[in-house]
Amino acid sequence: MLRITAGKLGSAIRGTIGVTSSRVAAVRALHGSEESAEDFDKRYEKYFSREGIDGWEIRKGMNDLLGMDLVPSPKVIEAGLRGARRVNDIALAIRWLEGCKDKCGDQKATLYPYLLEKITPTLKELGIPTIEELGYDKPELALKSVYDL
């Protein structure tokens, strides 16, 4: 009972805070001092483009980002894609795209196309297909809707 009430209260608070202020709040909670969005993005871009980074560290950075209450910026998404491609892990790159799409939440109809528009040149350069090109956006065994018959 308490878990349900706490969940509803958390949802109500998240709805009133908004994306940008929650991003700053998440950064403050992690580092104890205020960090601008640009510095945050640069830090993760630098992390993913480090020399000698391995697959485990890339996964850790991606999981840390996806665990925060924010949608990664296109520059950070591109840096993660380049890192995954550098260690030759295309499955990780596709999962990264899928995780970023899920982070869009209820704004998926507007935010995800914007992200795709910004990162499409990088996807083409690296040879990484989108989730939609692979058909992962639709369930494999889905039945036709009765309204489409």
Rank of each mutant, 00 (worst) to 15 (best):
Thr5Glu: 14
Ala6Met: 14
Ala6Phe: 10
Gly7Cys: 06
Lys8Pro: 07
Lys8Thr: 11
Gly10Asp: 12
Ser11Arg: 09
Arg14Asn: 12
Arg14Glu: 06
Arg14Ser: 07
Gly15Gln: 09
Thr16Ser: 08
Ile17Ser: 04
Ile17Gly: 04
Val19Lys: 11
Thr20Ile: 03
Ser21Phe: 05
Ser21Ile: 13
Ser21Cys: 08
Ala25Lys: 07
Ala26Arg: 07
Ala26Asn: 14
Val27Thr: 04
Arg28Phe: 08
Ala29Tyr: 09
Ala29Lys: 15
Leu30Trp: 13
Leu30Cys: 12
Ser33Leu: 02
Glu34Ala: 06
Glu34Asp: 04
Glu35Val: 07
Glu35His: 11
Ser36Pro: 09
Ser36Asp: 13
Ser36Leu: 13
Ala37Gly: 09
Glu38Tyr: 04
Glu38Cys: 04
Glu38Ala: 11
Glu38Trp: 03
Asp39Arg: 12
Phe40Trp: 13
Asp41Ile: 10
Asp41Met: 07
Lys42His: 10
Lys42Arg: 13
Tyr44Trp: 14
Glu45Asn: 06
Lys46Leu: 12
Lys46Arg: 14
Tyr47Ile: 03
Phe48Ser: 11
Phe48Lys: 09
Ser49Arg: 15
Arg50Thr: 12
Glu51Arg: 13
Ile53His: 01
Gly55Trp: 00
Trp56Leu: 11
Ile58Gly: 00
Gly61His: 01
Gly61Thr: 01
Asn63Glu: 14
Leu65Ile: 09
Leu65Asp: 02
Met68Pro: 05
Met68Asp: 11
Asp69Lys: 13
Asp69Thr: 12
Asp69Ile: 04
Leu70Tyr: 02
Pro72Gly: 10
Pro72Glu: 12
Ser73Tyr: 11
Ser73Glu: 14
Pro74Asp: 10
Ile77Glu: 01
Ile77His: 02
Glu78Gln: 10
Glu78Arg: 11
Ala79Asp: 01
Gly80Met: 01
Gly80Tyr: 00
Gly80Glu: 00
Ala84Asn: 06
Ala84Gln: 02
Val87Cys: 08
Asn88Ser: 11
Asn88Gly: 06
Leu92Cys: 04
Ala93Cys: 04
Ala93Val: 01
Ala93Leu: 05
Arg95Ile: 03
